[in-house]
Amino acid sequence: MIRRWGRYVGAAYRPAVQIPYTVSWAVGLTALFATVTAGVARWRPGVDLLVTTVTLMVTMLLIRALDDLRDLEYDRALNPGRPLPSGLVRPGDLYTLVAVGGVLLLALNAGRGVALVALVVQMVYTAAVIVAELVGGWPAPDRIGLQAAVNLPILSMLSLYVYAGFLRAEHVRPSAAGFVAVAAVTLGALAVEFGRKTSRRPRPGERTYATILGAAGTSAAGLAAAVLATTAVVVMVAPWRPGAAWGWLVLAPLALPVISAGRFAAGDNRWPALPTIAYVPAMYGSFLVVGWLTKGALG
């Protein structure tokens, strides 16, 4: 089973992609919290952030496994090369991986107070969503809009977990700015979700928001989500204030969804993969740079 797990991680989790993504999420979002929290004069990554980062890595692997279990029938029809339908790994292997990983996460976060509570709430919610679909068939696979509405809170809960870890490490109280930051990065993730599922000519049986919003509407929704996310961050960082000019850097990643939407408007069948997928890591990277320049070693 260990060997099958290893093959599964390499094929489905893709560490070369997922590890940089999760590290940027944990570190970049924490840097944004530091930037917008008045009670933090200096920010340094520490052990608490390391625990948060490892937790996100493991959690995203477990969510990937649960998604593969949930999408098995869909993948058999449209993606037979994926690990489960191809036989690279067995359903029992993934259920065991989720159980072992869940215990590891709880042990890693023992004693972290509200951060542990936030993690448990996310784990229970995710498990409930998966069970509801596997056992009760809800939401129906073709209800892609409802699927998104049910699944998106998982990302918000993980960002709230990052926030709880930041508050604990810095010994500060929660603020409205922190919750706005969570909402902003959730919108950023939604932009990529729309962008990845924007298509003029979907494959037979493909799940795409174009069936609800139309191809142009889906592209516009993705771009609008990115614009709203960026606007919220700019307002919080307030780069027009004296000494906060570095905050304008958070505008730079918006160029990626603008390029993607522009290419689509020019006639491409889909949003181009590279700028679409790169948007969220670039967004978090800009937060890290701004946080480091304003409240880190160079601040």
Rank of each mutant, 00 (worst) to 15 (best):
R3Y: 10
Y8P: 01
Y13H: 10
A16P: 13
V17A: 15
V17M: 15
Q18R: 14
T22D: 14
V23A: 01
W25V: 14
W25K: 15
V27C: 00
L29S: 12
T30V: 04
L32W: 06
T35F: 13
T35Q: 12
G39R: 08
V47R: 15
V51Q: 14
T53N: 06
V54F: 09
L62Q: 03
I63E: 07
R64H: 02
L66M: 13
L69W: 07
R70Y: 06
R70M: 09
E73D: 13
E73V: 13
Y74H: 06
Y74S: 05
R76E: 07
R76M: 07
A77K: 12
S86L: 12
S86A: 10
G87N: 11
L94M: 05
Y95D: 15
L97Y: 02
V98R: 08
G101V: 04
G102W: 04
V103D: 11
L104S: 09
L106I: 08
A110L: 07
A110V: 09
A110P: 14
G113W: 06
A118V: 03
L119A: 01
M123D: 06
M123V: 06
V124Q: 00
T126Q: 12
A127W: 04
I130H: 12
V131L: 08
E133D: 11
W138N: 12
P141C: 03
D142A: 13
R143I: 08
L152H: 13
P153Y: 09
P153M: 08
L158M: 15
L160P: 14
V162W: 14
Y163P: 14
R168S: 14
H171C: 13
R173A: 15
S175H: 13
A177N: 15
A181E: 12
V182A: 10
A183F: 13
L187E: 08
A189W: 14
A189S: 12
V192K: 06
V192T: 08
G195A: 05
G195L: 06
R201K: 09
P202I: 01
R207Q: 04
A216H: 10
A220Y: 09
A221G: 06
L223N: 11
L223Y: 08
A226V: 10
L228P: 06
A229Q: 05
A232P: 09
V233G: 08
V237F: 05
G243K: 00
L251Y: 04
L251D: 02
L254H: 03
V258I: 00
A261L: 05
A261S: 05
T276D: 07
T276K: 03
T276V: 04
A278Y: 06
A282Y: 01
A282N: 03
L288Y: 00
W292F: 12
T294A: 07
G299I: 00
G299A: 01
